[in-house]
């Protein structure tokens, strides 16, 4: 039961990083890939119904953390309170921009919403960099590792966004957003690779990664580096959809497996209660996610509610 519950928590966090990484990453890259009003509308249209199905993974992760792992929740919050509040603020700003963008008509107000989406995405992605660094080092430390890890995670988000854009911004023939995004995958993957290499080098330094499973940590870091190397090489843009997802997942798994986090056995009654009530909802959860993922692959031809 304990293993299952831990897997559930890790699944929600890694699922969030992989799926929401795509729409947050596209938000990061909007100033580059979407330069005209129509391109910006299409970029938001790629993000907009999709983000409703991706951010729920984090909400579920927070729920599981509070309900099944209160000791871990206490530890994480005590160590990372300022970063978590910043993350929440960035999230609020980003989502407000997405919800309100199509509701305002004046170009200046629309520019405010676009700025909120981009700035919010940067704050969210950078906060995640600090969260992962803080989890790995056991609290935020003023070390060389922390900024390097944060840059690597930011670049991973951008890589997810670039590959997402290369797939979902494909439209009319004159539209070059998808091409710009596809070309960006290689550049961003190289930045991520460099940052991840440096972070791996800085990990054993004082204030670096504190882990009692160095072999597992090194192995998952190696997987991450190989995936980034593949993406930055010749086959970059074609494979980036899969390799960026695997790289982001590897970063999440690396953190989950190597961070020293306090865990207590989940009391049996609570575990049985939660799993029994969760079981009937699982088919709906899976169906909704798969359906949304497939439906959003075809861009909406006409403007919808969001853009």
């Amino acid at each position: 039961m304990d293993v299952l519950s831990t897997v559930l928590l890790a699944l929600f966090v890694v699922g969030y990083l992989v799926l929401a990484g795509a729409d947050i990453g596209l938000g990061l890259l909007m100033p580059v890939v979407a330069r005209t009003p129509e391109q910006r509308r299409r970029a938001v249209a790629a993000i907009a119904p999709y983000f409703l199905a991706s951010e729920v993974w984090l909400v579920a992760a927070v729920g599981v953390l509070a309900g099944l792992f209160p000791a871990l929740d206490h530890h994480v919050v005590a160590e990372l309170w300022p970063v978590l509040v910043t993350l929440l603020g960035g999230w609020l700003v980003r989502d407000s921009g997405l919800w309100l963008r199509a509701r305002v008509d004046a170009p200046s107000r629309r520019a405010v919403c676009d700025t909120a989406v981009v700035a919010g995405s940067w704050v969210v992605a950078a906060s995640w960099g600090l969260v992962l660094a803080g989890l790995l080092t056991g609290g935020l430390t003023a070390s060389v590792f922390t900024p390097l890890c944060a840059v690597a995670v930011l670049a991973l988000f951008a890589l997810r966004g670039a590959s997402f854009g290369a797939e979902r911004l494909v439209g009319a023939l004159h539209d070059d957003s998808a091409d710009v995004a596809a070309r960006a995958t290689r550049v961003v993957a190289r930045v991520a690779l460099a940052a991840a290499l440096l972070a791996t080098g800085a990990a054993p330094l004082p204030g670096g990664v504190a882990t009692d499973r160095p072999v597992v940590a090194a192995a998952s870091a190696l997987v991450l580096l190989v995936l980034l190397a593949v993406t930055s090489g010749v086959r970059g843009p074609m494979l980036s959809r899969h390799t960026s997802a695997l790289a982001m997942g590897a970063a999440g798994v690396l953190t989950a497996l190597s961070a020293q986090l306090p865990t207590e056995p989940v009391p049996a009654t609570t575990a049985v209660f939660v799993w029994a009530a969760l079981a009937p909802a699982v088919p709906f959860m899976v169906l909704g996610q798969v359906w949304m993922y497939r439906l959003a692959r075809r861009p909406a031809p006409a403007p919808t509610f969001f853009a």
């Binding site: 119904p49 009530a277 909802a281 909704g288």
Partner: peptide
């Protein structure tokens, strides 16, 4: 956590997770 937050955990998974996804499907 194990008593008060357990129903909230179930809310996030069985209700909000599904609601938000299917609302996205309805919009799209």
């Amino acid at each position: 956590g194990y008593s008060f937050a357990a129903p909230l955990a179930l809310e996030t998974m069985t209700a909000f997770f599904v609601e938000s996804t299917f609302l996205g499907l309805w919009i799209f």
